[in-house]
Design a protein around this nucleic acid. Structure first.
Lengths: 361, 361
DNA sequence: AGTTCCACTGCAAACGTTTGTAGTCGCTCA
DNA sequence: TGAGCGACTACAAACGTTTGCAGTGGAACT
């Protein structure tokens, strides 16, 4: 039973009056301050122990006597004490923050990834900075540098930078790359090659012999993979594949390519992502071309969109949430041992819906 | 012309050798360390000035001699020096970070808001923590508390907490609330009342006399506003309005309410948000009810979805990006003067698309 | 020549933590 | 009885900055 009370009162400082002459080193009245947050020092004063003991109560509980610990915790609770992570970071060098850099938050591919990464990180007591580069490599670099001192690592999602740039940055801060393998760095990628192959095979099974590939952005590794794999799969089946692009990975861009797609004479199209596929369907619709009646369209990513369009979209499902979680895990593991490299490849699968159909004769 | 050179070499510490006996206090050879980041102290040593001068070079340039400043900047550049924001925060009390707490990142309402807020904040040299509460008030509170020490303020988007809770939290950290007015706190809200009125009037103009309101989540201020305003508008026109709910603001929930909507006998529905509207349309479709043939459906938010559904969705457009920017502005203004209160109300407008039509006779 | 002022720079304390080292105390064991 | 040990706690330095204060030298004014 502590022989002092906790009251509310205005000014800074925890120690106010000593009523009992006996307790010289512990205040009899404690002043909870409403405006200035309590520090470890306040807790120490009130509970009559040294700050280091309070510190250990939180960061190494097994080193402090259970009864002392209980008392400290009680006062910490009463004072509303919360450790200052910035101060802790200053001395330990670990911030318990991570950075998450994406090309475009509004692109429906990313929110599930962000959500999964954030909740996974928080479950491990990490907070997440989210930043948007607007598909700009320069912004990407600046952002990593700006965040470097505030985080224990950065998740670089679908970066548009060069490998060299990325490697250089990785000397300033641990990096995990998502959606692209970078030699010497941990990365998590989706097996889009497999997905693209499945998509092409699906279209060929439906009788299509001339297929168009609606390409994505220039810097994208995913784009190159899709192209490589689709070309191979088409050739293996003796079908033609016409590649269009590079194009920005947006809905508008997909719509704008509708005429170009028609000119290729293809009866089926594989698009770089759902967004472009949806745009393309709209564009074709405006030209009076029906999907899948006259042309089949397949997307990639299986974003929330794909179930909502009419016709619903056949697409390659990429496990974005799993990728977010995996990336966080790799970052937190590799925090110290930065030399370790690993490449996690996540499987993709084809989701057949209504936008692909048998070739019109 | 500085009489020392900059070379690459492995170990910590900037000062290595003095070749010229004359320059006792400035190193002749400088060791750029690849693994440990340069501190203000390294820059000071190399440029032969005190740390405080280096500090001022960055935080109060007008106080340092232009030529000194130039030299310091040059060496800072060469050493790759970047100020440590955590250390700066520790002493200034300002972190240059803000927190952004949303109910569900994957809800298409939020990404545009997050994107706008992040880019607006970054333009002002602030970084943004994004966190997701999964629509849980408890998580909300915990998150604000956890973030409090690391940020200069928090944007609370569509909070599910009680006003009392929010007010209590606002004593720990400056808060700006989005999508809900809280007495005594700065907030930015959308004029959904106006939007709901416009929607109801639109439906009435189309001949509908029995309208259903598909309500949203319990804690939502927006939900109450919509209900209040829709009721008023319907009554003014002598029409009936049946309110359903509360419901979770999700697509599934909208679909699940399809039968309940039919039972009300309404020929038109106003939904709490686009997500529910889209779900409802699906649900009705599954029951063989056509939209807008038999029932008209109007959403709220004008998310990216609404243009992509078939039929495209008539909906109330809320300026989410503008709300994000406004909230950031208010937070950054009110940082010091927390007593100031302000309520920014953003206009909404009705976007008429294909999901609403004249009442079937 | 002396005074005042200004522009600039150095000094040192502070911010809230962590952590290596050095006690102190009471036990156990020989 | 005294050495040794284990459990606990105090001390103090450190992390990388900012900032009030004091000091310096020189220019301008009287």
């Amino acid at each position: 039973m502590p022989d002092f009370v906790v009251v509310k009162a205005p000014p800074r400082s925890t120690v106010v009056i000593r009523t009992k002459p006996g307790s010289v080193d512990r205040p009899a009245t404690v002043c909870i301050n409403d405006t200035v947050p309590a520090t470890i020092r306040d807790v120490a004063r009130v509970s009559g122990v040294h700050v280091s003991t309070v510190s250990r109560t939180f960061s190494a509980p097994h080193l402090v006597n259970p009864s002392t610990r209980a008392r400290v915790l009680e006062f910490a609770e009463q004072l509303g004490y919360r450790p200052n992570r910035a101060a802790r970071a200053l001395i330990t060098g670990r911030t318990h923050n991570i950075g998450l850099i994406v090309a475009d938050i509004a692109n429906p591919f990313f929110p599930p990834l962000i959500k999964a990464a954030e909740s996974h990180a928080r479950a491990r007591d990490y907070h997440v900075f989210v930043a948007d580069t607007n598909e700009d490599a320069g912004v990407e670099e600046e952002l990593v540098l700006a965040l470097a001192k505030q985080v224990d690592g950065v998740l670089l999602c679908s970066p548009r930078m060069s490998n060299t740039q990325i490697e250089r940055l990785s000397r300033d801060v641990p990096l995990v790359v998502v959606n692209r393998p970078v030699p010497g760095l941990p990365a998590v990628v989706m097996d889009v090659a497999q997905g693209a192959r499945l998509a092409i095979e699906h279209l060929i099974t439906l009788g299509h012999r001339e297929i168009a590939l609606l390409g994505g952005p220039r810097g994208s590794w995913t784009n190159r993979e899709i192209r490589r794999s689709a070309t191979l799969a088409a050739r293996a089946a003796g079908s033609g594949l016409t590649v269009l692009g590079p194009n920005p990975p947006t809905e508008d861009s997909g719509a704008a390519q509708a005429e170009a797609v028609l000119r290729t004479g293809a009866t089926a199209v594989l698009a770089y992502n759902d967004l472009m596929a949806v745009g393309l369907i709209d564009g074709l619709d405006r030209l009076g071309v029906s999907v899948p009646g006259q042309i089949s369209v397949v997307g990639i990513d299986d974003t929330a969109l794909s179930r909502r369009t009419r016709p619903t979209l056949t697409t390659v499902a990429t496990p974005t949430a799993a990728a977010g979680r995996a990336a966080v895990d790799m970052l937190l593991q590799h925090g110290d041992d930065r030399r370790t490299t690993a490449l996690v490849t996540l499987q993709t699968e084809l989701v057949i819906r209504d936008s692909s159909g048998v070739r019109a004769s």
